[in-house]
Structures are given as structure tokens and as C-alpha cells.
């Protein structure tokens, strides 16, 4: 009893102490399967106006045991999803009798670096595509299969498998293609838009207060380089649009639909904010 009280007191004292030092993210090197992971990078210079000098991976803000779990791919529970994603990659589906592998062969070669360059302008659709939308386009046009419903387990695992082929490669998207800049601008507007009864914008949590604690959550810069991410809380991989919707819902707002123009624009802008950070998929977060 006494110990518990003391422990509780210690936590409060810790939190009440000189909070800046304690709330800072760690500065620690990450290596996964011998691959060096860039977790801190100079912020992109173009277009101008990035709010940070240095962009940081959410990994740096997590507790030591969560960090360790991501650093060891045998411990990372998200790797089971990646393995299942590989099965999906090789499974024939749809009337054309094809799998992803029928067209793209060995993902370790054909998909290397691909995940790091998304979202990407899709001229035919006239909008940016993320990996999930590209998979659905392949399924309908090439495989004559049904598109995945949002967050179908196969969609999430296959996306993670494809992104995992870019492990360690820094995120860099092509904003000069098509109309990407207007989507970037729309995403930026959305990032600073205050939503919900609690009246928070993305920037309220991930810019003005990153590094601080919101209850038990150590607020990161909200970067997307680790998605789909294994969340210990959910015990599953979580897609980026699921996370976006969760964050908006936490402001007590009705979130936009997955793959809506609002969230696609946000994805473009958020990916840019984290340019230079390595793809970490599947990252481990609390």
C-alpha cells in the first residue's frame, strides 16, 4: 500500500518536475534487421514554411519497451500481419485469375522504395492515390476483383507488406506531379482547421504541444512514416486513415470518411511534414 502511494507520488513528481526535459523525446539510434532507420531528419525546405527544424519519428516518443519491440522484428507483432500480407500478395483473386505477384513478381524487388514515395499523383483518377487506393485500382482494373472495403484485414496487411519493402528508405513524395500542390494546400488548411466540441486542430496536439503529455500520451509530431502501425491498445495493425479518423473523433467531431478528398489531402500534407524519415512499417505504438 505504502509502496503504491509512493510510486504514485513519484509519477506525479516526475510529471510535475521540469517538464521540458522530461517530456522531450529520446535521442536514440534505431536499427531494424540491420537496417539503419532515420528517426530524426532536417525538415523539408520546399515548399517553405515547415513548422519544425527537425522532423522526428513517433518512435522517439514511445516508452522503452515499446521502442524495443519495434527494434526487434521477432518481437514486433505487426510482422505477423506483414507475413500474412505476403500470402495475400501471392494469392490469385478475381476473374482475371491473377495475383499481385502475377504482374509485379517479387515484391522485395518490384516494391522496394514504392511505399516511401506515396501518396502519389494518379493522372487517370485526377487525385493523389495512397497504397490502399492503388491496390484497389489494381484489383478492379487488372484482377477483375472486388475492391477492398476500408480496413479489411487483407487491405491493411497487404499495405503493410508493400510499405515494409521500403523499410529504412526515407519518405519523399513528388509534389510537382499533376495537381499535387493544390492537394498539399488543402491538406495544410485541414491540418490547422479546428474541429469538434473540444476545438482542436491537428496542429494543437502535434505542433503546438508535441513533446508534452496529454494524459498518458506523449504527443509526437504525428508523422505517417510507420503506417500501417501496430497499436498495442488495439492489438492489431491500424491504417493511417483509421488513425486520422480516431484523432478527429477525439476532438468530438464527426470525422471525414476514409479516402475522402479531405483525408487524402491530409495524407499528402502529413507525408510531406515527415519527409526524410525512414519508412518504419510496421511501427509499434501504444
Amino acid at each position: 500500500m505504502k509502496n503504491r502511494t509512493l510510486a504514485a507520488l513519484a509519477v506525479v513528481l516526475l510529471l510535475a518536475g521540469p517538464t521540458t526535459a522530461l517530456a522531450d523525446p529520446v535521442s536514440e539510434a534505431l536499427e531494424i534487421d540491420g537496417e539503419a532507420i532515420v528517426t530524426e531528419a532536417p525538415a523539408p525546405k520546399e515548399p517553405p514554411g515547415h513548422p519544425f527544424d527537425v522532423v522526428k519519428s513517433g518512435w522517439l516518443y514511445r516508452e522503452p519497451d515499446t521502442r524495443a519491440m519495434e527494434a526487434d522484428s521477432f518481437e514486433n507483432p505487426g510482422m505477423l500481419n506483414v507475413e500474412h500480407g505476403e500470402v495475400v500478395w501471392n494469392t490469385v483473386a478475381g476473374e482475371a485469375g491473377k495475383s499481385c505477384a502475377s504482374c509485379h513478381g517479387d515484391a522485395a524487388e518490384s516494391m522496394q522504395g514504392v511505399g516511401a514515395s506515396y501518396p502519389k499523383w494518379n493522372a487517370k483518377a485526377g487525385k493523389p492515390f495512397d497504397i490502399e487506393l492503388q491496390i484497389n485500382a489494381c484489383r478492379t482494373a487488372q484482377m477483375k476483383a472486388e475492391p477492398y472495403k476500408f480496413d479489411a484485414q487483407d487491405q491493411v496487411d497487404l499495405t503493410a507488406y508493400i510499405k515494409h519493402q521500403s523499410l529504412g528508405i526515407p519518405v519523399k513524395i513528388d509534389l510537382s506531379a499533376g495537381d499535387m500542390m493544390s492537394w498539399w494546400q488543402k491538406g495544410k488548411d485541414r491540418y490547422y482547421l479546428r474541429t469538434g466540441q473540444l476545438n482542436f486542430a491537428c496542429a494543437s496536439c502535434h505542433e503546438a504541444n508535441s513533446g508534452r503529455y496529454l494524459r498518458a500520451d506523449h504527443l509526437s509530431q504525428g508523422n505517417s512514416n510507420g503506417f500501417p502501425t501496430y497499436r498495442l491498445k488495439q492489438g492489431n495493425l491500424v491504417s493511417l486513415h483509421n488513425r486520422f479518423r480516431g484523432c478527429v473523433r477525439d476532438t468530438r467531431a464527426e470525422p471525414p470518411k476514409a479516402f475522402s478528398d479531405e483525408l487524402m489531402a491530409l495524407e499528402v500534407y502529413v507525408a510531406w511534414r515527415g519527409e526524410g524519415l525512414s519508412v518504419e512499417t510496421p511501427a509499434v505504438r501504444q
Binding site: G196, Q197, A201, N209, R249, A253
Partner: peptide, 26 residues
């Protein structure tokens, strides 16, 4: 206007307030 602290008895809130919280104070 930039403060993070919500208005606990105010209807001057963000956009798209979820149905269950519409026109209600915290």
C-alpha cells in the same frame, strides 16, 4: 484564440461537431 484549453461552457467550438455533442457545452 490560440490556446489549447477548450471552452467548457461555450458554443464557440470547432467545425463538424459530432451529433451527440451538437449545441451542447462540455
Amino acid at each position: 484564440p490560440e490556446t489549447m484549453m477548450p471552452g467548457f461552457y461555450s458554443l464557440d467550438v470547432g467545425v463538424d461537431v459530432a451529433e451527440e455533442f451538437k449545441d451542447k457545452t462540455i
